[in-house]
């Protein structure tokens, strides 16, 4: 990525420096390749499906959280990993997703299913003006501007208590009873997660996704080719916002509430942490990060009073020594093993 002056002499590439980045991408769409490609996601989904019948109910409830965050982090990573846009404001949409369900019930007695479907559209609608304004700024200023939107949304939710119930948040029996059961809730969220990730995967691998990556690598050159960089980035921001809002609506099944902290800039930090821990150069890295972050956090909170210390230390170590995250490291390990295997043969 291009940065400023001397500082980027050894600029870090977001894609993991895996040995075979080129060979895999433009693979011909022959049937065998397609089959081979489908195997892994199908197997992963099957494993996750079976977990519903093997895990205890407490773990399943935590897995509900993980699934919501997996979508949240993957959607955020569309900006982070693909477009190279560091947003500290995705919580705006996450929170709006939750509030769409909660406030829809509170003020208009809308059924859960209606608001759940509505949430991503509300998220997208709000993302349009925010994206148009925030994307006028570049890099750090973009990050800080999204942070300001996050704080603005938080303040609004907290101070407009006639509408939002203020700091207390909205609680109520707005989630259908069936979904409050750990297993059905998990299975429902799993289905939504699989569909969302497939859609996001599609976006990543569409010509649009390619343009985003090209902009990230060399904005000026893409602009010179006549591509409207600004509009492409706004579009990415809106898509990400829609899925973040969907994640927020998913989170409601776990939290059964909507409250201002969901909009706060520290909440915006979560998906970024998750993406970094899991590896933002890979598609499934953020989802893996969500899994690790959530289970790590839950265990630490219960048994450590200093969980922030541990989280901070882990984050620092990853950022300093393992910049492509866990998935990057795994991919590297896979590459090493494969080479070793080939060498033996």
């Amino acid at each position: 990525m291009s940065t400023y002056g001397h500082l980027d002499t050894d600029a870090h590439d977001v894609d993991p420096p895996g040995p075979d980045t080129r060979s895999a991408r433009p693979a011909p769409a022959s049937r065998t390749v397609l089959l081979r490609r489908a195997t892994a996601p199908v197997a992963l989904t099957a494993v996750m499906f079976l977990l519903a019948f093997t895990l205890g109910s407490t773990t399943l409830v935590t897995m509900q959280e993980v699934l919501a965050f997996a979508v949240f982090a993957t959607a955020t990573n569309l900006l982070l990993g693909q477009a190279g846009l560091v947003s500290f404001g995705q919580a705006v949409f996450f929170g709006i997703g939750s509030y769409t369900v909660a406030l829809g019930w509170l003020h208009w007695q809308l059924p859960f299913w209606a608001t759940f479907v509505l949430a991503p559209f509300v998220g997208a609608l709000v993302a349009i003006p925010i994206g148009l304004v925030a994307l006028r700024a570049r890099k750090l200023y973009f990050a800080l501007s999204t942070l300001a939107f996050s704080e603005l949304a938080y303040q609004l939710a907290e101070s407009r208590y006639n509408f939002t119930k203020g700091a207390n948040g909205v609680f109520g029996p707005f989630v259908p009873t069936a979904l409050t059961q750990p297993r059905t809730g998990y299975l429902f969220l799993l289905a939504v997660t699989v569909v969302s990730l497939l859609l996001l995967w599609k976006v990543n691998h569409s010509p649009f996704g390619l343009v985003l990556r090209a902009i990230r690598e060399n904005r000026e050159r893409v602009q010179a080719l006549g591509v409207n960089v600004y509009l492409h980035q706004v579009a990415a921001f809106v898509i990400s916002g829609a899925f973040c809002a969907l994640a927020g609506a998913m989170f409601v099944i776990y939290s059964q509430s909507g409250y201002p902290e969901l909009l706060d800039w520290t909440t915006s930090g979560w998906p970024v942490f998750m993406a970094v821990i899991g590896g933002m150069g890979t598609f499934l890295g953020p989802a893996l990060g969500a899994l690790i972050y959530q289970f790590g956090h839950d265990q630490l909170v219960l048994y450590f009073s200093d969980w922030q210390l541990v989280l901070g230390a882990v984050l620092l170590v990853i950022v300093m020594f393992w910049p492509d995250g866990l998935m990057g490291a795994l991919a590297r390990l896979g590459g090493v093993i494969r080479r070793w295997w080939k060498g033996r043969r």
Partner: peptide
């Protein structure tokens, strides 16, 4: 060790430090 890296890396490193210092 992070000067050559992206903004995000530095931002997150200092954020991690904030968490660590807060608990200390």
């Amino acid at each position: 060790r992070l000067y050559g890296r992206e903004h995000l890396t530095q931002l997150l490193a200092t954020f991690a430090l904030l968490l660590i210092f807060a608990d200390l």
